[in-house]
Design a protein around this nucleic acid. Structure first.
Lengths: 232, 232
DNA sequence: GAGTGGTCTAGACCACGTG
DNA sequence: ACGTGGTCTAGACCACTCC
């Protein structure tokens, strides 16, 4: 046990919260009192408290003190990538079509563009073990330098397509997950000949000014996908 | 502009990463060099670097230095609560049944229990505007003090049910999202008389020793739910 | 051995909230 | 006025990496 001092202090307080000795809303001893209790300097105590703050255990109010936070019941982290999921990975992709279209009303609203602004549409099919598992459509705003090179597009995810121009760090992303009964043409594309639902995942990417940069909609065969997430 | 010094330094470096002046894999100036560049002390520079590390912009390697990180394309945060979602909130709930059952094989595996360990099953219907929108089943391990008081159970989420005993902080949660065609009995419960898919959300809660504490499965009418997530 | 980040100290001044 | 957290300094020693 040669952990740094600040880790031991954080662990000690964390245990008090986990065990219920400290309950949400309770106040912690002040920094100077914690210094005395653990016989260390203020910066070390503050390091411990910063860790617990990051972990969501506590929060501070300037002039008042530190308090035990309420845990977030309902927060999950999910890693979603249209080419990889927990049941099946996409092992090959077919580029159906790349074209330039005039946006319909839904697209005008979604991408917040003028009705005469043209949009690049990329339609693909994703395969696993030779079977089609998802139909994928991307709508990208045309920007100088956007690659329309087949080999670059074929296996790219939406962030990868857009990151050709913009730093990936400043992008904001949104995701929507819902289910749908497939239309006839989608059934044909995905070789669906029985009653089967689609899991639909919409991704939207924004630049640092909250301007939409692209929209992707992926229609997964319901028997080929399960999304997973976890706390933390 | 009377921001703290460490914020300005962080902002300055963040901008270099966002603009592409610094690219993933590039190394940053050393702490002492940053001290000279920004004419400040080492602890202040370290505070800036700690922030950028938390934000996922950079990472450090002891003995070597700081480097620009690769952004996480595919990480999303989703707030899920079986009683609230982006389309419709549950405005009332009906408790169908609470009973004690012997676990089937699926449940034995999922909750990692012995086959003769009994399990509490809670079955509910969720309504919005008087219409049934979801069918919900929870499986809880029996523990002393578990409340089986109807009024407490009726509107509780899975974490709330289990948090009666255990500190909510130390719990780990898992979520699985998929789609299914409803069975006949589910169709009746949810008043489904047309072709309609279900969005199924499974939640599993673990205590701090990774021991499963409960499983919840919620079957949402596909036209009544859309899950949403976002980066960060 | 020189340079790097990781930990830690013992001070300081400030803005804020409460009596 | 006093106690609180927020910011900042100028040092120190350590473990690690690389040459």
């Amino acid at each position: 046990m040669k952990n740094p001092v600040y880790m031991n202090i954080a662990e000690s307080i964390r245990n008090k919260v986990n065990s219920g000795t400290l309950k949400p809303g309770d106040d912690l001893p002040s920094e100077v009192n914690l210094c005395k209790e653990y016989e260390t300097s203020r910066m070390t105590v503050r390091k411990s408290l910063a860790i617990l703050t990051n972990e969501g255990y506590i929060y501070s109010v300037p002039g008042k003190g530190y308090f035990v936070a309420k845990p977030e019941y309902n927060k999950y982290t999910i890693y979603y990538d249209e080419m990889h999921n927990s049941i099946n990975n996409v092992d090959s992709a077919k580029l159906l079509e790349v074209d330039i279209i005039m946006p319909d009303e839904k697209l005008i609203n979604s991408l917040q563009i003028h009705q005469n602004k043209k949009v690049i549409r990329i339609r693909r099919l994703f395969y696993t073990d030779g079977e089609p598992m998802a139909y994928d459509v991307k709508y990208l705003l045309y920007h100088k330098g956007v690659p329309i090179v087949e080999q670059e597009i074929k296996h790219a995810t939406l962030p990868e397509m857009i990151a050709k121009n913009i730093s990936l760090f400043s992008m904001k992303k949104e995701i929507k997950i819902y289910t749908e009964i497939p239309q006839e043409k989608t059934k044909k594309l995905l070789h669906i000949d029985k009653e089967l639902a689609l899991l639909v995942v919409e991704q939207k990417l924004y630049d640092s000014n909250d301007k939409p940069m692209g929209l992707g909609i992926t229609y997964f065969r319901g028997d080929y996908i399960k999304l997973q997430g976890m706390s933390q």
